[in-house]
Write a protein that binds this DNA or RNA. Structure first.
Lengths: 109, 109
DNA sequence: ATAATCTATCGTATTATTGCAATGAACAAA
DNA sequence: TTTGTTCATTGCAATAATACGATAGATTAT
């Protein structure tokens, strides 16, 4: 049906999936990397950095904002985006947990 | 146009996005968690564990296999799936790097 | 008030993803 | 050979995601 059956999975599984979705597009990876690197909270500079139209960049920013991984502060006429430390740490912890899970002995290695 | 412009991003950014995509659906998260946990490399047991049809599970497995994060060994009449340690470590490292990037002082916190 | 700047949103087109029933392929057991 | 088991693939339908031009909204500068 093309719609993910989120209700049959755990909250944690859905959260992992949502946080992963934030990173599941190279443009959003580039946005996050740039926000991590640049000392000031660039805004429309992202449009310059990314080879995408302004509308497309704005849409990716909206998704990241919705997931919570970034937030923007209106500072007219610009909007100042930056990493949301809280959610960033949440993502770090959640992925850290996952990757630290010991891989059980496999039968087909 | 609905198609990701992969060619304008770096290989690393695309790789991060691909690996994240593997985790960007709760069913695939559940599959990976189960493969990490279960000592034997379950195959169709995944269909029992997941509240999805066999065809759907097979499709998610195919995606995970394509990204490289799991691999399957035919062991008739079953197929034995397990985590691909190499790629798993690659993912661990790539996400570890990303999350260890120091967050620069933000202007809008 | 007018113009310029920056960002968000709308509308639209295209492709990708999710899901499942049905079918097919491969093999083991009878 | 026939049957049953297991998994992959196909075909279809519906929703999500990607991308961009055009436009609207908000604010500053002139």
């Amino acid at each position: 049906m093309g719609v993910t059956k989120t209700q049959v999975f755990t909250d944690r599984q859905n959260r992992i999936a949502d946080l992963a979705k934030a990173l599941a597009h190279p443009a959003r990876v580039a946005i996050i990397q740039h926000l991590l690197k640049v000392n000031s909270c660039v805004c429309g500079d992202l449009v310059e950095v990314l080879p995408l139209a302004q509308a497309t960049v704005s849409q990716h920013l909206k998704e990241l904002k919705q997931i919570g991984i970034i937030h923007g502060e209106i500072n007219p006429p610009r909007v100042c985006y930056c990493i949301n430390e809280t959610v960033w740490q949440e993502a770090k912890a959640i992925f850290g947990d996952l990757f630290e899970t010991p891989v059980s002995a496999a039968c087909c290695n």
